[in-house]
């Protein structure tokens, strides 16, 4: 690891000013869960680390009727344990339980988790399905991006080097929306997901009023196929339609081969896990 200066801004404005001042020479430091690995592997060698984890108020979790707001410095563990989150977005709390391990969740922050834009992370599919957006601060002032806009590709977001995520907004899910996050690790459970599927369904009587299916780890950005989701809308749950939706996700997946499986294998298990996730969501939504 190369030596660096640790800068300790007291406010978000100071942090943004430091980013503007040092540009590419600086990196934001949240919990360090990811950045430490990059530093140790010398994949990045910034001269300055700007610590945002200790900025007062940046780790607040707040809510009003329409929105949950997660401060960027909220740790994954704090979100997982928040009563508000458990009541309003139980799937998010459930998904968090499978992220890394408790030591990682105790330090990793939601802002860092999203800004890292690693396709293997667990929360992007869940937050995408929930329609979350990020509040971004920088030289251009406040900007808002949906997660769909935020993620551009492998380790790439739409943020400028001088911008930082200040908060994540999660809209209150409509009544009746039920879902799951299913994670498949082909080797050790103590690993990145081979595929991670967030599936949410809302029932209208015996029919599906709404379907949201977002898949992580198998494409450069979280994978959502609205035309496949539409195959379910207005229908009763039937295995043929679910299988067709799963097939479409399997076909659309564009995974990188690695020790966890070849491209072909990852497409196959994407199909399996989309099917299983939709079936599990249907059970929760009272459709099965």
């Amino acid at each position: 690891m190369r030596p660096f200066d640790l800068l300790q801004p007291a406010t978000v404005d100071e942090a943004v000013a430091l980013l503007a001042q040092h540009g590419e020479d600086a990196r934001l430091l949240g919990g360090g869960a990811m950045l430490t690995i990059l530093l140790r592997q010398r994949l990045v060698a910034p001269r300055y680390l700007i610590n945002v984890a200790d900025i007062p108020g940046l780790n607040a979790i707040s809510s009003d009727h329409n929105t949950l707001r997660l401060g960027a410095a909220s740790t994954l563990r704090a979100i997982e344990r928040s009563d508000t989150i458990r009541a309003r977005c139980p799937v998010l709390a459930e998904a968090l339980r499978s992220v890394g391990n408790i030591r990682v969740r105790n330090v990793a922050t939601i802002g860092g988790h999203l800004a890292h834009a690693d396709v293997h992370l667990d929360l992007p599919p869940v937050l995408c399905a929930l329609g979350a957006s990020v509040v971004v601060l920088g030289r251009h002032g406040d900007r808002h991006f949906s997660l769909d806009e935020l993620f551009v590709g492998y380790y790439e977001t739409c943020l400028a080097p001088t911008e930082m995520i200040a908060a994540v907004d999660v809209p209150t899910p409509p009544p009746g929306l039920q879902g799951v996050y299913l994670k498949y690790c082909s080797l050790s459970p103590n690993d990145w997901p081979t595929v991670g599927v967030a599936a949410f369904l809302r029932a209208d009587g015996e029919r599906i009023a709404e379907a949201r299916i977002v898949v992580g780890s198998v494409s450069p950005r979280p994978l959502r196929l609205t035309e496949a989701e539409d195959l379910l809308r207005g229908e009763r749950l039937n295995s043929g339609a679910v299988a067709e939706v799963a097939r479409r996700y399997g076909r659309a997946a564009d995974p990188l081969p690695d020790i966890r499986g070849s491209e072909d294998y990852k497409r196959r298990v994407t199909e399996v896990y989309v099917r299983r996730a939709v079936e599990a969501a249907a059970t929760r939504a009272g459709l099965a």
């Binding site: 103590n190 690993d191 690695d258 020790i259």
Partner: peptide, 15 residues
């Protein structure tokens, strides 16, 4: 291609 425990998995307690 996998000289680290990120991509070389050994049994953990979960295994």
């Amino acid at each position: 291609t996998n000289p680290s425990f990120v991509d070389y998995k050994i049994p953990s307690f979960l295994d």
